[in-house]
């Protein structure tokens, strides 16, 4: 991945404001940002390791550990709560066998909170591996569970 960093900065620029775009590109490439890569990022953008570590740990998206093979981002915001989001969250945790905010022990699926997907009239909603799913009820939850089992 270290040469991914140098190649990316060679193509997209190495000024400090390229840090977030670079971290997003690394997420797409490897799914997470390994702490061991921080020195390479710092060198490429001429920042200190502290600068890079401070940014990575600030933003929720920049995970530092491998994600589950499947990621279910369930919305916890008010509009979805108004449409029964809390109950669906409890059911999902039970059905998928993983606590909110965790990756299942077998690494198969991660259940993550997200505060609003902008689908506030058709909640409860979720992003399942990046794909939006609306009006989640028990049946839809079952379909999601089968899909992430694969």
């Amino acid at each position: 991945m270290e040469d991914f960093v140098t190649e990316w900065t060679a193509r997209h620029g190495a000024t400090r404001d390229r840090l977030l775009p670079l971290l997003h590109a690394m997420l797409e490439e490897a799914g997470y940002i390994d702490d061991a890569l921080v020195p390479a990022i710092a060198r490429a953008l001429n920042l200190s390791r502290a600068d890079v570590h401070g940014v990575i740990t600030f933003y929720h998206d920049f995970r530092r550990t491998a994600p589950g093979r499947h990621v279910v981002k369930l919305c916890r915001a008010e509009s979805c709560q108004a449409r029964g989001g809390a109950a669906i969250e409890a059911a999902a945790a039970k059905r998928l066998g993983v606590a909110m905010g965790e990756v299942r022990a077998d690494g198969q699926v991660a259940l993550e909170p997200v505060y609003c997907l902008g689908l506030c009239a058709i909640g409860p909603n979720a992003l399942v591996d990046g794909r939006p799913v609306g009006r989640i009820d028990a049946a839809v939850l079952e379909r999601i569970a089968l899909e992430v089992a694969a």
Binding site: R16, D17, L20, H24, D51, G54, F58, Y59, H60, V114
Partner: peptide, 26 residues
């Protein structure tokens, strides 16, 4: 286009500017 990274506070204009500048969205 610059993509946020899951920090609601970056909706505050100065935090947003810091985020574009490659910093913590403070």
């Amino acid at each position: 286009v610059r993509e946020g990274a899951g920090a609601y506070v970056c909706g505050e204009e100065t935090a947003l500017l810091d985020s574009i500048e490659g910093k913590r969205g403070q």
